[in-house]
């Protein structure tokens, strides 16, 4: 249905290009530059590239030192391994409110073959709980690329996750994006599917299937998990009366939790969460069958939407 492109490569090249223009940008990496493709940055901006070795916690604190000096550090490693640096992010980035940009690559289940040690299903939960932190999950490669200058020029800590997988192409070069603003990808009046990352394209497919079954689903691209776009969320709850969330993350603590918490507080309507159901995953040759097995199939979104509509 969608053409694919290589998100990490596009992100890596775009970060390198942006670094040529913005000399304040520093890139730090923890022995994974060839994997997360910060090698492009290293080639174009060698004096501003620092490989700290397998030292994720130290990398975050070193990025903090750069931020204290007015530079804009991007600290890159695998999203799953960033959990090693949780206290550093909490104390020295979030609490100290330093201008550090943290990029969690190989996010979600996108490093399918390497198994549960390398799958990141709780990064959003952890970083979203930290005051001062902005949390972003771009929904395709163009969006990931567009976010680079936005997060660099945003004053304050940001966590953004990047998929290892080839992602469906949803946007073209004219795509406009703003931190904290979701967008309506497809309109509908019976239920709203709020998604990001790899699950946005699946949600659009689900909306097609729902349409053939007489349910008109609205689909929202909610690339910013924090701060959540509350005006858009209120509008969707009021206009469609039922909500489904879909994300490549545990249903505990991610986009689904963020939406459910906000809806419970403000406009109680049925909410169904699609994601990993509080369990560890496993290895797979490919991402798509793994997403299907762990509750993120297009049909899981369809079923969740049907249930949400019934509960109205």
């Amino acid at each position: 249905m969608f053409k694919l492109d290589n998100t990490r490569q596009i992100f890596g090249e775009a970060l390198a290009e942006y670094g040529v223009k913005n000399k304040k940008v520093i890139v730090l990496t923890a022995d994974v530059s060839a994997s997360v493709m910060t090698t492009f940055f290293a080639q174009k901006n060698p004096e501003r590239f620092f490989n700290v070795g397998i030292a994720e916690a130290g990398m975050i604190d070193t990025a903090v030192g750069f931020a204290l000096s007015g530079m804009v550090p991007f600290a890159n490693t695998f999203a799953a391994l960033l959990l090693r640096a949780t206290e550093q992010v909490r104390t020295c980035v979030a609490y100290a409110n330093t201008n550090v940009k943290i990029i969690g690559s190989f996010a979600g289940l996108s490093d399918a073959k390497d198994g549960a040690t390398h799958h990141s299903i709780m990064d959003i939960a952890v970083f979203r709980a930290m005051p001062n932190m902005t949390v972003i999950v771009p929904s395709d490669s163009i969006e990931a690329k567009r976010m680079i200058p936005l997060i660099a020029e945003h004053e304050g800590p940001v966590y953004m996750r990047i998929s290892r997988a080839e992602m469906p192409i949803l946007f073209d070069e004219n795509h406009k994006v703003e931190i904290g603003k979701g967008t309506i990808m497809r309109d509908g009046s019976d239920v709203t599917i709020i998604a990001n990352g790899h699950l946005l394209s699946r949600s659009l497919e689900a909306a097609d299937r729902l349409s053939s079954r007489g349910i008109k689903a609205r689909v929202i691209n909610m690339h910013t998990v924090k701060p959540l776009d509350m005006p858009l969320l209120r509008k969707c709850a009021q206009e469609t009366g039922a909500i489904v969330t879909a994300e490549e993350h545990s249903i505990i603590g991610g986009l689904g939790s963020a939406v459910a918490e906000a809806i419970a507080d403000e406009i109680p309507v049925p909410v169904k969460r699609v994601g990993v159901a509080d369990k560890f995953t496993e290895s797979s040759k490919d991402l798509d069958p793994l997403l299907d097995k762990y509750g993120m199939a297009v049909d899981d979104i369809v079923k969740a939407a049907q249930q949400a509509v019934k509960q109205k």
Partner: peptide, 11 residues
Amino acid sequence: INIAAGLCLAA
């Protein structure tokens, strides 16, 4: 030490 290293590298 890590924070100081970041400060020194930036300097």
